[in-house]
């Protein structure tokens, strides 16, 4: 009898722990799910593709191929955590990328050209942030204007691609710091630095906590938080990330091209959401977005390994996005009920 009771109590305690974890850390669950999906993808691909998928080369190239997307996703995470959205990231990347290429081709030194394009990205972000914060424009519409502006400016700079021959920019891409079969390029290091810096700011600074607070509650200003300044700043951060991504993509492809990054904003949003950031705002992790980017990149790699149409990537990402949104809704509804009762 006693042993049965003990067993029953243990189960109860375990579910108790589980429930406590669920209620306190519900917001990390989607990110954990993304990690699980990433592991599943790797294991599944390893088994299905005759055991030549998990190689140092493949994993290294995952970071190299998606460095620009990772940078965009980090900036976007800040915006989405405040409950906003930034559709302009892909266009800002194209604009800054082509402008950088043009400035360099015109003989301007990188030390001047790079700050100039980063500033341009920041200004597009500033425009969006000001429209959102001071004119009550929906983030979606304001960033739509940013998308139009940056895309058009990219074509104003040049209608065709411009080759980059500056040694410093090509160095970012061509240098491979080797460790056995593993390698990392300066672009990859840059992307990781942006991600870790973003994660640090988000978790350990007053600015980061304000970002979460704005997403959780629009009336956060009542608590003395600097809502206006922070809201504008997240869009500026996203714009600067767009500029950095422009640099990385220009280095990656060795040229600026005004048609780059059409639809990349959707890939970035998908990566952020798959990484566990809730679109309603208030919950999410920068490192989760990093996992989301890797999930995206891995799906792309698997599809090209299988020799299938790349259009399957879009379909699978779309389906995955849907699953995550539905799960998020369930979690948000659950925690709302909990906090109300």
């Amino acid at each position: 009898m006693t042993s049965v009771e003990t067993a029953a109590r243990t189960t109860r305690e375990q579910t108790g722990y589980f429930q406590t974890f669920m209620s306190r850390r519900a917001s990390i669950l989607p990110t954990l799910a993304a990690v699980a999906i990433l592991i599943l993808l790797f294991v599944g691909a390893e088994i299905l593709l005759r055991g030549d998928f998990i190689t140092p080369r493949n994993i290294s190239s995952l970071l190299l191929d998606n460095a620009y997307l990772l940078i965009l996703a980090v900036g976007l995470t800040f915006v989405i955590v405040t409950g906003g959205i930034d559709l302009s990231v892909g266009s800002v990347m194209a604009f800054t990328g082509i402008w950088l290429a043009q400035l360099l081709a015109a003989g301007v030194s990188l030390a001047i050209a790079l700050p100039a394009v980063l500033l341009a990205g920041a200004l597009v972000g500033l425009l969006i942030g000001v429209l959102v914060q001071f004119f009550d424009v929906q983030p979606f519409i304001a960033s739509l204007a940013g998308l139009f502006l940056a895309r058009g400016l990219a074509f104003v700079v040049s209608l065709s691609s411009i080759k980059v021959e500056t040694a410093e920019v090509l160095w970012l891409q061509s240098t491979r710091i080797q460790l056995g079969d593993w390698y990392i390029t300066p672009t990859g290091i840059l992307a990781l630095l942006v991600a870790f810096a973003g994660a640090w700011v988000m978790q350990f600074t007053r600015f980061g906590r304000t970002t979460y607070a704005i997403g959780g509650n629009k009336q956060a200003a009542l608590m003395g938080l600097k809502v206006a300044r922070t809201t504008v700043a997240v869009y500026v951060i996203s714009g600067i990330c767009g500029g950095l991504a422009g640099l990385v993509l220009t280095a990656y492809s060795g040229a600026g091209y005004p048609r780059n990054g059409v639809g990349t904003e959707l890939d970035a949003i998908a990566a952020v959401v798959i990484g566990g950031t809730v679109l309603a705002g208030g919950r999410g992790y920068v490192l989760g977005s990093m996992v989301g980017v890797f999930v995206y990149g891995t799906i792309k790699t698997i599809i090209s390994f299988m020799g299938a149409e790349q259009s399957w990537t879009q379909i699978i990402i779309g389906a995955l996005l849907l699953v995550f949104i539905v799960v998020q809704r369930a979690i948000v509804a659950r925690s709302d009920r909990r906090s109300r009762s």
């Binding site: 959205i85 979606f140 959707l266 949003i269 998908a270 959401v273 679109l279 309603a280 149409e309 259009s311 399957w312 990537t313 879009q314 379909i315 990402i317 779309g318 389906a319 996005l321 849907l322 949104i325 539905v326 809704r329």
Partner: peptide
């Protein structure tokens, strides 16, 4: 009850893939 922007974003992403197929 999914936000319209997100709900239609799914098809915006996947729809072109379907058209390409």
């Amino acid at each position: 009850g999914i936000q319209p922007i997100i709900a239609t974003l799914v098809l915006m992403l996947a729809g072109r893939g379907v058209a390409l197929l």
